[in-house]
């Protein structure tokens, strides 16, 4: 299964680990469905960034699709 990537250069850094964010494969879930996506995350502690445009865009779209299934 191919992994959708939502990575992009970002100025956000992990404050706790003092690390830049790196593309990372993560599994996000909603209503019994699992999606493998690539997001920016802290390579040390794994803090995953969901930027605003993703949250109110593609993510919302998928959430609504799943809710109507």
């Amino acid at each position: 299964m191919s992994t959708l990537s939502f990575t992009h250069p970002t100025s956000w850094r992990c404050a706790a680990c003092n690390q830049d964010l790196q593309p990372q494969k993560v599994a996000v879930t909603y209503l019994h469905s699992v999606f493998h996506v690539e997001l920016m995350a802290c390579s040390q502690c794994g803090f995953v960034l969901v930027p605003e445009d993703l949250a109110i865009g593609k993510m919302l779209e998928v959430e609504q699709l799943l809710e109507d299934k």
């Binding site: 993560v26 599994a27 996000v28 909603y30 949250a55 993510m59 959430e63």
Partner: peptide, 8 residues
């Protein structure tokens, strides 16, 4: 902002 998808 918010989302309902659950992060790992």
């Amino acid at each position: 902002y918010s989302h309902r998808m659950v992060l790992p």
